[in-house]
Each structure stands twice: as C-alpha cells, then as structure tokens.
C-alpha cells in the first residue's frame, strides 16, 4: 500500500511544505454529500443533498439552525458538524445573553475558524473532518461563508461543497453575477437547480434535498418537504438526462483518484481552498 512518511501526525510538515493530515481532512469534506449556498443582498439560501447510508436507514440532517439569524449546511463528518454547530449555538446564545443582540456572522465565523486552526497545530488532536457553509444576516447585510478543516474561511457570493459539487459550482459560476439583486424565490430556484446539478442522473425530489432560508424579516428556517416539492414542481426542475450527469461523476472520481485534492483549474495547494 502507498505509504507517506509525513502523514502520520497532524503537526509534521512534508518537505514540500504541506500538512498531509490537514489535507486528508479537507478530503473528507469532498466525500460528504453536497451542500450549496448562495446569497442576494437580503437573503441567503442553503441547500443540501440528503443521502441515506443504508437502504434501511434514514438520512442524516445536514442543515442546522444556529440562531434566528444564522444557519449552517455541512459536508463531511456529520458528527464533527454537529459538534461545531453546537459550539456556534452556544456562542450566539452567550452573545445574546450579554449584549441582547445577535452575534455578527463574520465574528462567529472567525471564532469557528480559530477553533479549527487549533486542531492543525496540536499533536494530540485531529482536524475537524467537516466543511461548513455558514449563512447569516447581520447589520452589514446577508453573508455566506465557507469554513474548512484547515482553519481557513472565505466569504462567498455562492459556493458548493461535497461530492460532485463541481457541477453545482459550474452552474453558480455562470449565474452568480445576478444573485446580488435576486429575489428570495429566485435564489431558492437557483439553489434547487444547483443541487440538481450534483445529482447523478437521479430525479430531484423533495425527499432527497433540504432547503433553508434566512433573510430580512425572515428568521433562519428549513423549508418543509411539501413546500420544497411545490417549488420543484413550480419551477419544473427535473432530473438531467443520463449523459451529462455521468460525465460529472467521472471527473469527480478522477480527482479523488489523483489524491492530490487540488482542483485542476486552480493548481493551488488544497489548503488554500
């Protein structure tokens, strides 16, 4: 089996200046089922694909409400995601207790990133194996952040993580310039289409996806299944035909096989993403 001299410890550098354990954690995010997020000036929409591990089991929850003004969608190790969302909830509630006002989204994200960073610098810890899309609304408007296991965080107009997220990213990259002025419903529609892109020949139905919205005058909430199905029907979003979806799967497999984890189009070290 392939052995790497420098990947047995989080804190050990490779001569090339990489931390393999951290990169493996980033890899865990790509294995998880897809989650996407996009925002306008006033709203943020999160959506994710629900996949059951097993024919007999139900799927795991991937979108969590943190506070009235913040919610997260996760991809990767759900257990780690739950731990982090509990941390975020407690930070929000403590802030509300002390200041009677909502915690600014950007600050929560920095605290979360610092928490993740500590795990990359302690020999007795492991990085979190989860990527979080943090959607929130504060004084400065609507925000969408991506937090990753390396301790990096980025603000996005729209983003997708998890398996076959490249297809959703491609769709979002084509459309994101109009998002700022989008209506709430248009955002939801784009979210559903982006989610559909990540499906592999499967038909988009409300039982395999979750959609959540936060925005001005609208506290973070997960849309119920019936509403989602109505939206899918109204927008006439149906599954793509087999060929393009199959292609998307091939490219995803190749990336994983390469093991470098660097998205081909950027050629950057995985930690940058």
């Amino acid at each position: 089996m392939f052995r790497n001299q420098y990947d047995t410890d989080v804190t050990t550098w490779s001569p090339a200046g990489r931390l393999f354990q951290v990169e493996y954690a980033m890899e865990a995010v790509k294995q998880g089922s897809a989650a996407i997020g996009l925002r306008s000036r006033t709203h943020v929409v999160l959506a994710c694909v629900n996949k059951a591990n097993n024919e007999l089991s139900s799927h795991q929850k991937k979108i969590f409400k943190v506070d009235d003004h913040i919610g997260v969608a996760i991809a990767g190790l759900t257990a780690d995601g739950r731990v982090l969302s509990r941390y975020m909830r407690s930070e929000c509630v403590n802030h509300a207790f002390t200041y009677e006002s909502p915690l600014p989204v950007g600050r929560l994200v920095v605290q979360l990133a610092d928490k993740a960073q500590v795990c990359t610098q302690r020999s007795w810890k492991r990085p979190y194996g989860v990527g979080l899309l943090v959607a929130g609304l504060d004084e400065s408007g609507a925000h969408l952040y991506y937090n990753c296991p390396s301790g990096n965080y980025f603000e996005y107009q729209a983003f997708a993580i998890g398996s076959r997220s490249q297809a959703a990213k491609t769709y979002l990259e084509r459309r994101f310039e109009n998002f700022m002025d989008s209506s709430r419903d248009d955002l939801v529609k784009d979210a559903l289409i982006a989610i559909r892109e990540t499906l592999q020949g499967e038909t988009l139905k409300s039982n395999i996806c979750t959609v959540a919205v936060v925005g001005v005058g609208e506290p973070f909430h997960i849309l119920d299944q019936k509403t989602v199905q109505q939206l899918i029907d109204a927008f006439e979003i149906v599954g793509e035909e087999e060929p393009p979806a199959a292609e998307a799967e091939d490219t995803a497999d190749q990336e994983t096989a390469a093991g470098e984890g660097a998205p081909a189009e950027e050629g950057a070290a995985p930690m940058d993403i």
Binding site: F97, T98, Y99, E100, S101, P104, G106, R107, V110, D138, E139, S140
Partner: peptide
Amino acid sequence: MWDDGNSLGPKEVHNYLTR
C-alpha cells in the same frame, strides 16, 4: 480590534452593564 465594521451600540453596552 475586530475591525470589521460592527460596533457595540447603546443597547449592547446597557445590557452588558446590567449583567
């Protein structure tokens, strides 16, 4: 020090003092 454009308003300071 956050330097992020957010700042504590009178309501926040008042509640802090209460605590």
